[in-house]
């Protein structure tokens, strides 16, 4: 399936420009740094009218892609925004309660052997 062109930034130029959408912030204000395959989803809650963090077009674009559970990597690829920018914007959306991280398993726990077997079966069936 070819990438959806409307998401591509044309002539995006040097990397510094995407940070304009984060107001110059290069890292989330607090909380953990989201892993590449962390999964997020929209909560369906709109931000409060008096919330200091406003949604810019890139926030809204990301939010629009979170109707279904989706990984951080897929969001970055879909929007063609750099990973760092995506993380800052997702942190904003999390802070607002507009999205939430879907917990898969505690980060220090390895994938279970039963899931490994399912992965093996799935690969063999490809």
């Amino acid at each position: 399936m070819p990438p959806d062109d409307k998401w591509r930034r044309r002539g995006s130029g040097p990397v510094v420009r995407p940070y304009a959408v984060t107001g110059g912030r290069t890292a989330p204000a607090d909380g953990e740094v989201l892993d590449l395959i962390a999964v997020v989803v929209a909560t369906g809650r709109s931000p409060a009218a008096d919330d200091p963090v406003r949604l810019n077009p890139e926030h809204r674009r990301l939010l629009g892609l979170c109707d279904q559970q989706i990984t951080v990597a897929d969001l970055a690829a879909d929007t063609a925004l750099p990973l760092g920018v995506v993380r800052v914007l997702l942190a904003d959306l999390t802070q607002l309660g507009a999205i939430t991280v879907v917990r898969q398993r505690p980060a220090n726990q390895r994938t279970g052997n039963d899931v490994l077997q399912e992965i093996l079966n799935g690969l063999r069936a490809l």
Binding site: V16, G23, G24, R25, A80, L81, G84
Partner: peptide
């Protein structure tokens, strides 16, 4: 194959809110 853009983290000291054009390519790796 999907492309994922990432970059070396800019230090916040080098990214000003007022003048992002001051950051040159030497301080980042895309």
């Amino acid at each position: 194959v999907r492309p994922l853009r990432t970059e070396e983290t800019l230090t916040t000291a080098s990214v000003g809110l007022d003048d992002l054009s001051g950051v040159d390519g030497k301080t980042t790796t895309t």
